Simulated scan of single mutants.
Amino acid sequence: MPEIFKLRGVGVDYRTPAGVVTGIDDVTLDIPANGVTVLAGPSGSGKSTLLRVLGLFEPPARGEVRFQGADVGAMRHRARRELRRKHLGLILQNPPDNLLGYLSVADNLRAAAESAKVTCRPDDILAQLGLDGTGGWDITALSGGQQQRLAFGCALARQATVILADEPTSQLDEASADLVLDTLRYLVAQDFAVLVTSHDERLISLGARVARLRNGKLESVA
């Protein structure tokens, strides 16, 4: 299976008043171009830092990050931003943080597409995600799980190559989390590359590849 990301010896450090703190260290990992890859581990293990590296928000302090063969660690900020705009969709933990509350459901999809300079058909995306008939609704009319499902829809509207999600079920009740899990299964069936941080065992079980981290180190990949 081809890889969309290749990481070799990647490390990230943060400067704090108490000194330099290492977020991740010596991470070597290949991410396949389709299926779900889960970054698993307890709080503080480095999984969110690693997701930021993969999302091209956090340049590595050391090591090499390649996306579709290009060395993104050596790129300038503008070039990384352009790659993010064209290829990556990011979903945050808290569903409302992913959406524009002053826009309708359909207009959120249109805005996401415009941000990537593409067009979309909101009704088609909503139908794919089981949100038929909600295009004219306010965001607040959706449940938490439906909002998170719409956030994934915004990534589809942007025609993202890779979808990254940081603990997408952590703020949801079980029924709402089920909607997110169903959405991830749909994305896998559509051959997307999905990168997810989680300690939700049900979500981890969806992973074609699970990378477990502890104290900033990669413990295992299975």
Rank of each mutant, 00 (worst) to 15 (best):
Q128A: 07
E3M: 07
P95F: 02
V10Y: 01
C120W: 04
L203I: 03
A175H: 04
S115P: 08
K217I: 09
D71Q: 13
D107F: 09
S115A: 15
I204Y: 12
A141S: 06
L131Y: 00
I204H: 14
A222D: 10
L213H: 03
G135E: 07
M1A: 10
K86A: 13
G63W: 08
R66M: 05
P168N: 07
A79S: 08
G207C: 02
D200Y: 13
T161P: 10
A189D: 15
R52Y: 14
N94G: 00
H77A: 14
A160P: 15
T183W: 13
L109E: 01
E64H: 11
A208L: 07
V210H: 14
P32R: 09
I204A: 04
R84D: 04
E3V: 08
S198Q: 03
R81G: 10
S115I: 12
G136Y: 04
M1K: 09
C154E: 07
E114T: 00
G44M: 02
T140C: 03
R78D: 05
V162G: 12
I125A: 06
L150P: 10
S45M: 09
K86E: 11
T169K: 11
D30W: 04
L187Y: 08
K86S: 10
Y14A: 05
A157P: 02
M1I: 15
L187I: 12
R121E: 12
S43Y: 10
P2I: 12
G135S: 06
G89S: 09
K86T: 13
A157G: 01
A189N: 13
R202I: 08
S198T: 12
R158K: 10
D178P: 02
